[in-house]
Design a protein around this nucleic acid. Structure first.
Lengths: 121, 121
DNA sequence: ACACATATATCGCCCATCGATATATTGGCC
DNA sequence: GGCCAATATATCGATGGGCGATATATGTGT
């Protein structure tokens, strides 16, 4: 609602996940879903444009890496995955974003916190 | 992001304010700003369409009332204010919205909470 | 052979947000 | 009197971005 700062939750989640460990797109969609019992649906249409934007901002970096078959380390399938890593700049930004997010939810809570306790004007 | 449910903060704030006491538009913009040190800017372009929508949903009701001059109760200026009151349905909805909002922020926090093993707050 | 899962990526429709704008009255100030 | 800010409510349309639909390619299971 831009009253304050959207502090975009989707980005927050992705940066947080990447702050824990490097990951690739498809994995992130699964992780987000799994860790939220399906509540957080990070769809391709949302995720990939976002990763692109985050990289353009220098908050994350990417690199293609081979997928090696389970049992046979020599088996190069030629398939690749694009791994994403958070950058130092990204970590700093994440801290800021988290702080902004907490400030924002705290602010909203000050309005919710003043609960009614029956009254009629 | 619609990952989950936006649980629109602006509506949350307005419904909460009206749950405390009845109010009129201009007052709500001032209240929101005052109670947030200017952080929450509930502009006319945001507020009035929202009040209209809330009323259409039956969550609030409205009524025009005369503005009486301070010292002279007989002084009818002819000016009017539109007062808004939350409806029972609105209160119910507010409760639901608050619950949804708390669930949502809690969910986001599970991602933020899993901070990289290390630093202590 | 077929369906589904893995994996990445783009495009553009839809529509909600909100800045700009309009209108009217009152109060203060010089 | 003249002017500007504050009070008070309201509409509208462009801007932009979220995300569903879609495309592409390989792997795996039956």
């Amino acid at each position: 609602m831009a009253l304050f700062d959207k502090s975009d939750s989707a980005q927050l989640v992705v940066l947080s996940l990447l702050a824990e460990r490097a990951g690739y797109g498809y994995q992130l969609t699964k992780d987000a879903a799994a860790r939220s019992n399906g509540a957080l649906r990070l769809t391709p249409g949302v995720l990939y444009p976002m990763l692109k934007a985050l990289e353009a901002e220098g908050l994350i970096t990417s690199s293609w890496e081979e997928i090696k078959a389970e049992g046979s380390p020599l088996d190069e399938t030629g398939r690749r995955r694009k791994w994403y890593r958070i950058s130092p700049k990204g970590r700093k930004k994440l801290e800021q974003r988290i702080a902004a997010h907490r400030a924002y939810t705290a602010l909203i809570d000050t309005f919710l916190g003043a609960r009614p306790q029956g009254e009629r004007p």
